[in-house]
Amino acid sequence: MSPELESLSKSCQPFIPTIIAFCCNWCSYGAADLAGVNRTKYPTNLRIVRVMCSGMVHADMVINSLLKGADGVMVLGCHMGDCHYINGNEKAARRAEVIQEMLPDYGLEAQRFRIEWISAAEGGKFAQTAQEMTDLITKLGPNPFKKKGEEPDAC
C-alpha cells in the first residue's frame, strides 16, 4: 500500500474510545462477571480495574487516567446503603461531584466521568452502562490530552 493510502486508511479508522472502569469488588465487579456468564454483549473497549471499594478511588486516580489519555472514566460501586464498608460509596459520591467540578478546569467535558451504582445481580445494567458510556464518548471524540510529544511552537 502506498504511504498516502496508508495514512488515508488510518485517518478513516473509526474512533474507538478507551474507557477505564473502576469496579468495586463486592458489587460492580460481580455485575461484570454476571454479564460475562450471561453472555451479554457489551463494548470491548472497557478496561476494568478491580478495586476493593468505590470509596478508595481517589480523585487523583480519575484525573490522572484522563490526563494520561483515557477517553472516559467510570466509577462503579454498590447501591447506597449496600456498601460492604458501610459508607465507602457515599465518599465516592461526594468525590464524584468534585471531579465533575474539576474537569472543565482541565479543559475536559464533565461527561467524560460517570459514577453509577450497580449491584452484583445487575449484569444487564452493567452492559447497558458500558454501552451508553461508549456511545457518549464516541460522540464527544478523543481526549485532547492524547496528543503528546509536541514541541513548543511560536504563536
Binding site: 481517589h58 480523585a59 487523583d60 480519575v62 484525573i63 461531584e97 474539576m102
Partner: peptide, 21 residues
Amino acid sequence: TYTTPMSNMLGALASIGADTS
C-alpha cells in the same frame, strides 16, 4: 512531581464532607 495538587486536595476535602463549592 507526578501528583496533581488540585485533585489530591479536593478529593481529600470531599471525602471528609467539606464544602468544596
